[in-house]
Amino acid sequence: MKFAIAVFSPGHAPSSRRALLFAQAALAGGHEIVRLFFYQDGVHSASGNIVTPQDEFDVPAHWRAFVTEHALDAVVCIAAALRRGVLNEEEAARYQRNAVNLPAPWDLSGLGQLHEAAQTADRLVCFGGD
């Protein structure tokens, strides 16, 4: 079956980790993830500037490794990301900001990508809050 998974919480929220473990279990179960979409505070889950203490589970790093390993389509909502200071190189240059914190493997794009994924998938599963 095909899943679209949307993440609405930052990496330090338990629900971001829960989304990651759900996504891993879905792939392990032989299912497909058509797209990961990061919206609202979920854009922070994709930030490359998170420094997690060494003895703690680094959720954003695990997201990055997971997306890279499985070559997943992972989209960060551009409007939500700009508002929260999550920028790739192109946007940082456009708005003349110093910090780039959204390196590959993420794509910045619009909410249409969430709808497209929901249309393609058998299930849309969202994670957010606590």
């Binding site: 919206y39 619009g110 909410l111 249409g112 969430l114 709808h115 497209e116």
Partner: peptide, 8 residues
Amino acid sequence: IALAGGAF
């Protein structure tokens, strides 16, 4: 989300 979906 609603407005984006409506546009499609």
